[in-house]
Design a protein around this nucleic acid. Sequence first.
DNA 1: ATTCTTAATGTTATAGCATTACAGTTTTTT
DNA 2: AAAAAACTGTAATGCTATAACATTAAGAAT
Lengths: 131, 131
Amino acid sequence: MNTQPRLTRNQDMVFRVLVDAKTPLSAYTILDQVREFGIRAPLQIYRALDKLQGWGMVHRLESLNAFIACARADCQRHEMVAFAICDKCRHVSEFSDAQVKAHLDNWVGDKEFLANQTAIEIRGTCRACAR
Amino acid sequence: MNTQPRLTRNQDMVFRVLVDAKTPLSAYTILDQVREFGIRAPLQIYRALDKLQGWGMVHRLESLNAFIACARADCQRHEMVAFAICDKCRHVSEFSDAQVKAHLDNWVGDKEFLANQTAIEIRGTCRACAR
DNA sequence: ATTCTTAATGTTATAGCATTACAGTTTTTT
DNA sequence: AAAAAACTGTAATGCTATAACATTAAGAAT
C-alpha cells in the first residue's frame, strides 16, 4: 500500500471517469470513455486501476468484475470496507463496520492466517428499488 | 434456494470433480477434467454449477472466479459463509460467524437493503505457507 | 401407455474480462 | 549527464461467461 504521489495523465483520466460515474464500471467501459483522449488498450486502464487501488482511491468489486471510486472524501484510511450492491440499479453503498472487522480479525488471528485484503460484498435490492 | 433432487449425470460429474479437488477450480479447469466423459462445452459446466450453487453444495469464490465444494458435511444450512483464501497454496478455509452475520444483517436492516447473497473473502497467507 | 409439460442436454458462436511480451518514453535520482 | 525507475503504447492472446437455438430425457396427468 504505497503512498500516493501526483497522478499521471492516464491515472487521472481513469480516476475522473470513476468519480463521475456514481456506479461501478468495468475496465472496458472506462476504456470506451477515454478513447477520445488517446487511450486505446485495456492494459492502459488496468495499469492505472492497479495504482489507484494501491492508493485506496479505487475499489474493485469482485462479484461484479468492476471498479468504483472510493466513497470517502479522504481516501487514506484503509479499514476493512464492505459494499452493498443493488442488483437492480447498480447503486453501491460503501461502509465500514469496526465490529465486523474485529470479528474477522479475531477469526484469522486464531487461525494464524495473515490477512492481506478482505472483500465483503452484499448483493441485493436497495430501498429505492424495493417497491 | 431450491430443494435438492437427485443429481443428473453432468451435475454429478462436476460435483465429484470439485469434491476431489480440495482447492478451488475454474469452470474451464473442471471442463478439462470431464472432457474424457463426453462433456465438451463450458456452458454444460456452468449450468451444473448454477444448480449446485442453488442447492448450497458448491460455493463461488468471487475474487477468484472459481468454485469449491461446500466444506460442510451437511450442505443444507445456508447461513452467511466466509472464506479465507491462501494466495500461495490456494487452500480455502470455509467458516461462518454468527456475529459477523448479525452485524451485517444489522447494517442492511438499517438501510432497508434486501440482502440476497453475501460474499466475504479474506485473501492472504495461511499458517502453513507463512514460514 | 400416451400425451403433456418441464427440466436438462448438446453445440456453435460470441461477448466480456484480464494478462503476457516487448519496445519505447518520461521522470526521478544520483 | 548518466543511471535507474516508473510509466506508456501496442499487438496478440488467454481466460471467463452467456446468448441463441435445436434436441433429448424425465416426470406427471389423464
